[in-house]
Write a protein that binds this DNA or RNA. Structure first.
Length: 317
RNA sequence: CCCGCCUUAGCUCAAUUUGGCAGAGCGUUGGACUGUAGAUCCAAAUGUUGCUGGUUCAAGUCCGGCAGGCGGGACCA
């Protein structure tokens, strides 16, 4: 039990609430869900949550992935038809990342117009202030000079989703935090049980921006070609000696060390020869300025090309 | 339904009272400097001026219509 909790917490920012998590772990087949707005590219940021879902699956959870087509529509991401296509593509990406057999993929529009669901949304609408709803969308909403009513319906629907999907855990990136907290507050008011909310950290963009995001093009997509991975990493922001906000250090933390004890760094003799670094060693040597950024970049490039090889393979078949 | 205002490069905005070759900053791209990127320096690219009709030798600029947006008013039997 304690062991499971430690595993679940690993690589997350917060679990709200840990005591409730214990109760959930006692259940027979608890349900964990994450919702994704269909997106043109599935990138490493998405992959962090997918990997966490995989882990939850291995710990006995049933996984539900919401392909949130209506949410994307409300967020101005395109026409319903375009979004439906993107959703199919995303589903394939998620499968390529390993969520194949025991994962239930659910299209939002399949249930988000039903009576009980919309009733919950209307109930929540009477309980939620405009400001609170808008504020919850700060990190999620597409920036819009003229914000639409849609952006305030969005968090209410996300709350209703949790009830409809009967989830015990709602997993999401940290940008979801305010919506999730709104949900934890709102659901009990409807006499419903709020899920445990788990938030994963946000990856910095390759350009050093606060957030890796498909709209900014500062990401590595899970199905990027080897060439794309190379050039993207080569052009990445990577200040010497700095660990904080360094996207390549973050990639190492989230994509290398959960799976490998050592990161292999190959470099010519004139630069000191090859190295194999544990996480602690990497952080130490890099922050001391004793590992050249280019060596780190080359190592991460080689690693990520291999890491994502099965994904590319799956996507191409 | 009525009135007023707004719409110019990817973004923020210029374009002299009184029509005269559509510009800047940021961003983007390319080079220089670095064993990476960034910073810095140098260079370059980018426009159906919301759409549409008209006046004029000449319209971003003046007139009409339309669309979208913002603000207000009216209606509240």
């Amino acid at each position: 039990m304690e062991d499971k909790i430690a595993k679940i917490k690993e690589g997350t920012v917060e679990v709200i609430d840990e005591n409730e998590l214990k109760e959930i772990l006692a259940k027979d087949k608890p349900i964990a869900y994450t919702g994704y707005e269909p997106s043109g590219k599935i990138h490493l940021g998405h992959a962090i949550t997918i990997m966490k879902l995989k882990q939850l699956e291995s710990l006995g959870f049933k996984i539900k992935i919401l392909l949130a087509d209506y949410h994307a529509f409300l967020n101005g991401k395109g026409t319903v038809e375009e979004i439906a296509e993107t959703a199919e593509y995303n589903k394939k990406c998620f499968k390529a990342l390993g969520l194949i057999e025991n994962t239930e993929y659910i299209l939002g529009s399949e249930f988000q117009t039903k009576g009980e669901y919309t009733n919950n949304v209307y109930q929540l609408a009477t309980l939620t202030t405009l400001k609170r709803a808008r504020r919850s969308m700060d990190m999620v909403s597409r920036e819009d000079e003229n914000p639409k009513v849609a952006s305030t319906i969005y968090p209410l629907m996300q709350t209703a989703d949790m009830a409809a999907l009967e989830c015990d855990i709602a997993l999401g990136g940290l940008e979801q935090r305010k919506i999730q907290m709104l949900a934890r507050e709102g659901l009990p008011k409807l006499g419903l049980k709020a899920p445990v909310c788990i938030h994963t950290p946000l990856l910095h963009g390759l350009d050093g921006d606060d957030k890796m995001s498909s709209s900014k093009g500062n990401f590595i997509a899970v199905d990027d070609s080897e060439e794309d991975i190379k050039t993207k990493i080569k052009q990445s922001y990577c200040p010497k000696g700095e660990i904080e906000g360094n996207p390549l250090i973050e990639i190492a933390e989230h994509f290398v060390y959960p799976f490998e004890d050592k990161l292999i760094i190959e470099r010519p003799e004139k630069f000191g020869g090859n190295l194999e670094l544990s996480k602690e060693e990497l952080l130490k040597i890099y922050s001391e300025g004793n590992l050249h950024p280019m060596d780190l970049k080359n190592a991460i490039t080689n690693y990520m090309i291999e890491f994502l090889r099965p994904v590319r393979k799956y996507m191409n078949k």
